[in-house]
């Protein structure tokens, strides 16, 4: 019995280590590529770097205007995330709670899901024509709107189970106590589903941060390049891939995601523990 427990522990430990290596190795490999010099990058690569340089990081900022791409990515991601969260949470709550005439709830939910599952390229061309008609193509607005479009259905569906799972009695008590609809939603409902909001915010942030297709179609000027667009220009069919710079850009682009996830985790943990203790 004790031996059984021990061997299960060893198995669990081994699996954890393997999963950890599997997960962290790409990050290690990216860091390791970003600090090797060009000569090493075009010869056979060993597991550990044989040279050290920060040239690729410097080149990104000096030659590729990467700082501008970072600023653009942050601006587009946070703006689209804010709008998507506000609109998505409101829609999701309405869909979870409101009674619809003519059994429209199912079709509406299916319609929302369709926006998410239809290939993005299907929206790209009609949106391009629309944005062009409104003369918006030279701005960041088309990309922001496209990111909102991608994230809203995801937020609605993700949050639907959180809102549906809330006991209606809590909301009824607040209403009896005189809370308006807005107060009820903002002060009672939202804090109760904070773990869900945090998780969906992290996932939507990542979708927007890494989005490429709408960016490449809508962006007309290098001054509006996002990080994925900027990195894509370093690997073209006509020239050799600049692996060092691509890896350096990948490492830099990881930082905001990691910081956002760490920051959001605070809300995740707070939300999970709230209501756990009866006061």
């Amino acid at each position: 019995m004790r031996r059984n427990k021990k061997s299960r522990k060893i198995l669990r430990g081994t699996c954890s280590v393997l999963i950890l290596i599997w997960t962290l190795f790409p990050v290690y490999w990216m860091i390791s590529l970003s600090i090797r010099d060009d000569a090493e990058l075009i010869s056979s690569l060993s597991l550990f770097p044989g040279s050290f340089t920060v040239k690729h990081f410097a080149q990104l900022f000096v030659r590729n205007n990467f700082l501008m791409a970072i600023i653009n990515s942050l601006y587009i991601t946070f703006t689209s995330l804010a709008f998507a969260l506000i609109l998505g949470l409101i829609c999701s709550y309405i869909l979870a709670r409101a009674r619809f005439k003519y059994k429209l709830k199912g079709p509406v939910l299916f319609w929302v899901l369709l926006v998410r599952v239809i290939p993005p390229i299907a929206f790209a061309l009609p949106l391009y024509i629309m944005m062009n008609k409104f003369s918006l193509l030279n701005t960041k607005i088309p990309v922001i709107l496209a990111h909102i479009l991608v994230n809203i259905p995801f937020i609605i569906w993700y949050m639907l189970s959180f809102f549906s799972g809330l006991p209606e009695e809590v909301e009824e008590s607040a209403e009896i106590d005189g809370a308006s609809d807005m107060q009820l939603f903002a002060r009672i409902v939202i804090p109760l589903v904070m773990p869900g909001i945090t998780a969906v915010a992290i996932l939507s942030f990542m979708t927007s941060w890494n989005e490429y297709l709408y960016g490449v179609i809508f962006v007309q000027s290098p001054s509006n390049f996002t990080i994925p667009l900027s990195l894509s220009t370093l690997n073209s069919e006509q020239e050799l891939a600049q692996w060092g710079s691509i890896a350096a850009g990948g490492i830099i682009s990881l930082v905001p995601i990691a910081l956002f996830a760490i920051f959001a985790q605070i809300f995740l943990i707070q939300g999970l523990s709230s209501g756990a203790v009866k006061e």
Binding site: V216, S236, Q238
Partner: peptide
Amino acid sequence: EVLGLEAS
């Protein structure tokens, strides 16, 4: 202003 893009 030069816009550099991947070929496709």
